Amino acid sequence: MIHFLVHDENDSCGVVVVEGIKAGETLTGWVMDQDKTIHVRVTQDIPIGHKLATKALAEGDTVIKYGVDIGRVVAPIPVGAHLHVHNVKTKRW
C-alpha cells in the first residue's frame, strides 16, 4: 500500500494520500520520477493531503516539493515529521 507520494528523490517532502496516519507508523511512499518506493517512520499524526518530511531539515533550509522551492524552514523538522505552516513559511513575503 502506498501512503504518500514524492515527485522526485531530490524533494524533501511527500504528500500523505490516505486517512488516519498515526505517529509511530512506518509508511511506504512512491517516488514517481524514479518509480521506486521508500519507507519513512512518522513522528506525528499527519492528515491526508498534508506533507511529511522525507529528509531532515534545519531552520533556514529550503523545502522542495515537485522539484520547486515551496518555502523556508522556520523550526527544525526531523524525518517523518508533519511539515506545515507551523514549521514552514513562504519566501514571498
Rank of each mutant, 00 (worst) to 15 (best):
V63E: 07
L57D: 01
H39G: 15
V79W: 06
P76V: 06
V40K: 04
D35P: 12
K55D: 02
E25L: 10
V15R: 01
D35W: 04
G29H: 14
K91E: 11
G29N: 00
L83R: 12
T43P: 02
G20S: 07
H82N: 05
A75H: 13
V16E: 06
I77M: 09
T28E: 15
K36N: 05
V74M: 06
K91L: 11
I64N: 07
R41I: 02
V31N: 01
E9G: 11
D45H: 08
I21H: 00
T54Y: 00
V68S: 14
Y66N: 02
M32S: 03
G24E: 08
E19I: 00
C13R: 04
G71K: 01
D11S: 10
A81C: 11
A23R: 07
V42D: 03
E25H: 11
K55T: 13
E59Q: 09
K55N: 10
K36E: 12
G71M: 07
I21T: 04
D69Q: 06
Y66T: 01
I2F: 08
Q34I: 15
V74A: 02
A81Y: 14
L27K: 05
I2R: 10
K91Y: 08
K51S: 00
P78E: 14
G49D: 09
V42E: 11
G14W: 00
K55P: 08
G80I: 03
V79Y: 01
A75S: 12
R41H: 06
V74S: 13
G14K: 06
L52Q: 12
I38N: 07
T28G: 12
I70E: 00
W30E: 06
I64D: 04
G24V: 08
I70W: 05
L5W: 04
A58I: 09
C13Q: 00
G49I: 01
T37F: 13
G67C: 12
G80E: 06
R92F: 13
D33H: 13
I21S: 01
I64L: 13
K36Y: 02
D8Q: 00
K91G: 13
H7F: 10
D35A: 15
W30K: 10
A75P: 03
N10H: 13
A75Q: 08
T26A: 13
D11H: 01
H50R: 09
V15L: 07
K51Y: 02
V31Y: 05
H84Y: 00
A53R: 03
M1I: 09
T90I: 11
H3K: 06
H82W: 14
T54D: 02
K51D: 10
N87M: 02
G14D: 05
Y66E: 05
R92T: 14
A81G: 09
G67K: 08
A75V: 04
T26D: 03
W30I: 12
V88D: 03
V68P: 10
A23P: 08
A56L: 15
E9S: 05
T54G: 10
I46M: 06
G20P: 07
D33C: 03
Q44G: 10
G14P: 02
K91C: 11
T28L: 07
W93S: 08
D69M: 09
G49W: 00
H39A: 11
A58H: 14
R72V: 10
